[in-house]
């Protein structure tokens, strides 16, 4: 069968709602788009552990300490699951886990804008759980119907865990919102800090060429703007019901058009954050990852040596 015929059959299977599996034939373009998406998703989970990990040692009650530890652990676990999926996709290109992990250290893979930002107070830890994870759930739930089977299965577990994270964040938020004046102010400040980043998180309004290809391939099914609108519908009423102010004077719901009107973030600024690691915490967090990976290579090497010894003893 010629490549062209294979591609036609591949598209027919996708249109008929079949899931593509790791061992199935797939067009290079499909593989590359998926790999880019899942690689970035996996690395974002791992980099996403870092802003919150700053608050693990400082969590203010025993219960909160346990909860935030478990949450950050989940993020690392998601990173691991996603990298396993990406590894299979990357294998035909001769790329390994080592490459996927070190790419972020060398600026060869992007991670979500939100994880380049500062989280200077405990309220930021709450906002990350509530709204960043809330936004992530909306994104990821839309991907549950993706045409790639291994990604869909991993996402099912991730979404289930993320909804716990959202509740963890919400619990912190509710406590602060019902707390002292200082606590409420801390919360409002954190919301102000995160709002623009949250809007950027969903991506540009216009459908880019590669986004359109991902829609064609059934990798994703919704546009950025559809997802952002879902986010507004779900969270704006909740934010307001806590007595917090959304830091966008233009934000309103157009009843006729059935859509939210909102102020666009500074696309260029956040573009630089993501593409050039120019966010306030980008370098520091990349350095932490470099420490974790490069400076501890001796540990992984020792484990390999020790395994060889064990194997040779058994043989």
């Amino acid at each position: 069968m010629s490549i062209a015929d294979k591609e036609i059959r591949f598209m027919e299977r996708i249109k008929a709602g079949y899931k593509i599996e790791a061992t199935d034939w797939m067009p290079d373009e499909y593989r590359k788009l998926l790999l880019k998406l899942i690689h970035m998703h996996g690395i974002s989970e791992i980099m996403g552990a870092l802003p919150e990990k700053e608050w693990v040692p400082k969590a203010p009650t025993l219960k909160r300490k346990l909860a935030i530890m478990a949450k950050v652990q989940d993020e690392m676990g998601h990173g691991q699951l996603l990298l396993r999926v990406a590894e299979d996709l990357a294998a035909p290109f001769g790329r390994t886990r080592e490459d996927l992990v070190t790419d972020v250290i060398h600026g060869r893979v992007k991670f979500h804008n939100v994880f380049h930002m500062e989280a200077p107070t405990w309220a930021d830890a709450g906002i990350i759980g509530w709204l960043v994870d809330g936004a992530a759930i909306i994104n990821q739930a839309a991907l549950l119907h993706t045409s790639y089977g291994p990604y869909a299965r991993v996402l099912k577990r991730i979404c289930a865990e993320e909804s716990f994270h959202m509740q963890h964040g919400e619990s912190i938020i509710l406590t602060l919102a019902g707390g002292t004046d200082d606590q409420r102010q801390m919360l409002q400040d954190a919301l102000n800090r995160w709002w623009e980043s949250l809007l950027f998180f969903f991506g540009p309004v216009e459908v880019t060429a590669s986004a359109q290809r991902m829609i064609d391939y059934g990798i994703r099914t919704k546009t950025n703007e559809e997802l952002r609108q879902q986010f507004f519908t779900k969270y704006v009423p909740r934010i307001r019901s806590l007595g917090l102010e959304v830091p966008d004077p233009k934000l309103s719901y157009d009843e006729e058009a059935k859509r939210w009107i909102w102020t666009e973030p500074d696309w260029e600024k956040f573009g630089r954050v993501v593409k050039e690691n120019q966010g306030p915490k980008s370098q520091q967090r990349v350095d932490l990852r470099r420490f974790a990976h490069e400076e501890q290579q001796w540990v992984r090497e020792a484990m390999l040596r020790s395994r060889k010894k064990t194997v040779s003893m058994i043989v």
Binding site: I46, A49, L50, K53, V56, P57, L62, K63, K65, L66, M69, A70, V72, Q73, M76, G77, G79, Q80, L83, V101, L288, F291, A292, Q296, V299, R300
Partner: peptide, 28 residues
């Protein structure tokens, strides 16, 4: 728990965090 996100590999990060959580759970 200070190792979270920084363990020598991702699998160990997850494993070691379980230990950290158990310890804080026992303290509680």
């Amino acid at each position: 728990s200070e190792w979270l996100g920084l363990a020598p590999d991702i699998e160990e990060d997850v494993a070691f965090s379980s230990i950290a959580q158990d310890e804080v759970g026992h303290a509680t």
